[in-house]
Simulated scan of single mutants.
Amino acid sequence: MKTASQILMLMAVISFMSCGQLHVVTLYVDTSQVEKSNTDQYAHFGQPKGISNKDFTIYVRKGDRVIWNAVSTSNSADVVNITSIINKSGVDKQNKPFVNFFKAKYSNPDYTMSQSSTRDIKGIVRRAIKKGKPGDIQKYSLTFTINDMKKEIEVDPKMQMFY
């Protein structure tokens, strides 16, 4: 299963290389410790200490492509699946409304049939940046599950358009 996921990621990277810049955003999850109440402590994007998940920002331009995936840092047998990315409304620190860089408010994960079985490889979300102006910020929530458990855990990073 791990090899199939790596092949899927490689295919996604190759397919996106032709348009804009590719951003791969990996969520690292300590699956042995993470709970809804301690997400910031046990799930992160590899950002430097002192930058919270809510302040983690990727900088994009129109036409760029973004791939979100997730991995366990504590048990390689655990499967972390991104279940949704949902646009959030509100305003930034300068009281400017958040902008949705995509066409849809809600992004489902991409499901691709594994070549070696009839099981789906899931938990990776791929999207292209469709709209926005320099300085615009998109706030979104990313939800994930561990080993297909029913409870979803949420983190809330953001994206900002380059100037």
Results as ranks from 00 to 15, higher is better:
28 Y>E: 08
149 M>L: 12
77 A>C: 02
63 G>D: 15
89 S>D: 07
139 K>T: 09
81 N>G: 01
132 G>R: 09
6 Q>D: 15
52 S>G: 04
31 T>V: 09
105 K>H: 12
40 D>F: 02
138 Q>A: 09
63 G>A: 14
73 T>M: 10
75 N>F: 09
101 F>M: 12
117 S>W: 03
112 T>D: 01
119 R>A: 05
104 A>L: 11
149 M>T: 13
51 I>T: 10
102 F>Y: 13
75 N>D: 14
107 S>W: 11
9 M>E: 15
141 S>A: 05
106 Y>L: 13
69 N>G: 07
79 V>I: 14
74 S>M: 12
24 V>W: 00
28 Y>K: 12
25 V>H: 04
35 E>W: 01
16 F>T: 11
105 K>Y: 11
39 T>D: 08
44 H>E: 00
98 F>V: 08
151 K>W: 08
25 V>K: 05
55 D>R: 12
159 M>F: 03
8 L>W: 07
129 I>R: 00
103 K>V: 07
53 N>H: 02
147 N>Y: 02
88 K>M: 13
91 V>A: 00
59 Y>C: 11
20 G>V: 02
105 K>W: 13
133 K>F: 12
109 P>V: 09
153 I>S: 10
31 T>K: 06
61 R>H: 15
120 D>I: 00
123 G>A: 00
86 I>V: 14
101 F>C: 12
27 L>N: 06
132 G>M: 13
102 F>P: 04
118 T>Q: 04
124 I>S: 13
72 S>C: 01
35 E>F: 05
100 N>E: 08
88 K>T: 12
120 D>N: 03
141 S>F: 04
140 Y>N: 01
159 M>L: 13
37 S>D: 09
1 M>W: 00
144 F>W: 06
61 R>I: 13
3 T>F: 08
47 Q>Y: 00
104 A>I: 11
48 P>T: 01
33 Q>S: 14
99 V>Q: 14
23 H>L: 07
134 P>L: 15
104 A>P: 05
77 A>K: 14
61 R>L: 15
17 M>F: 02
117 S>R: 05
155 V>P: 02
22 L>T: 07
133 K>C: 14
118 T>M: 06
32 S>W: 06
12 A>E: 15
116 S>M: 02
159 M>E: 07
34 V>W: 03
142 L>P: 05
109 P>W: 08
138 Q>M: 15
65 R>D: 04
63 G>L: 13
14 I>K: 15
80 V>R: 04
89 S>R: 10
129 I>E: 09
30 D>R: 05
160 Q>I: 05
139 K>M: 09
142 L>V: 13
68 W>M: 10
30 D>G: 00
105 K>V: 10
24 V>D: 06
101 F>S: 10
41 Q>S: 04
32 S>F: 08
102 F>G: 14
38 N>R: 08
146 I>C: 03
74 S>E: 01
102 F>I: 11
141 S>R: 06
76 S>L: 10
12 A>T: 12
156 D>R: 12
11 M>S: 15
21 Q>Y: 03
94 Q>T: 09
124 I>Q: 09
110 D>H: 03
133 K>W: 06
4 A>T: 06
33 Q>E: 05
56 F>N: 07
124 I>K: 11
69 N>A: 02
86 I>G: 00
101 F>I: 11
130 K>E: 13
84 S>M: 03
130 K>C: 12
116 S>C: 03
121 I>H: 01
118 T>L: 02
87 N>K: 11
129 I>Y: 09
136 D>K: 07
27 L>Q: 02
